[in-house]
Amino acid sequence: MKNFFKIFSFIILFSGLSLSTQAAEKVEYLKTDWSFKGLFGKFDRAALQRGYQVYTEVCSSCHSMKYLSYRNLAEKGGPEFSIEQAKAIAASFEVKDGPNSDGDMFTRPGRLSDKFVMPYDNVQAAQAANGGAYPPDMSVLVKARGGGVDYIYSLLQGYEDPPAGVILDDGVYYNKYMYGNKIKMANQLSDGLVEYSDGTIASVEQMSKDVTTFLMWSAEPHLESRHQMGFKAIVYLIILTILVYFSMKRIWSRIETEV
């Protein structure tokens, strides 16, 4: 058994090591409490709904979210808009469809099954409209950046005047959290930019937090069921392990050997 714990602690140590090497290049990001962290982490519904509002009113003019559908907005574990609300949201967008029986493309109001409408038809159009920089698709953005949610949250609030000696080209901005500090997206958020229907004050910090929460959900839509299932699975495994441990002791007691 002693030997066994040696192995077990070795595995834990290894896991710890692998985590620490991942976090090699450390930047101190802004900290905030994320409701979705931890063993029982869940999304804050109101924050997700507000975050969706920020995305739609601010980000969506340049950033697509091609893996999301309007139906996702009403799904469990997400912003959980009611079906009616989600239908109304979908219907407020013009979706290109077709070809119809005459072979023409046409537009119609969106349905739940439609994907989020994209701001540009293709990457080239997006680049052309943004000075050559492609505004990345935001569906899995949180998972595609080393710092995850903390990075996005910090980046949105990290705009400042460049320090002396740093010369910026036209259309390039200084952001202290951006890799290399130069970013082609201008500062988008300012206090009171959106008007939250739930009365929350739309400070830059609040909006950053809300939209980052929304992005976390869009990257990991099943996070809540993952956490719930994980807890059950691990509790179950511990119970079975204990049962098997005592069965093992019982079986090995037939012979004179420690196990």
Partner: peptide, 11 residues
Amino acid sequence: LFTATYAVGAV
């Protein structure tokens, strides 16, 4: 003990 182990395992 054995029955319980089997049963929990089967679940």
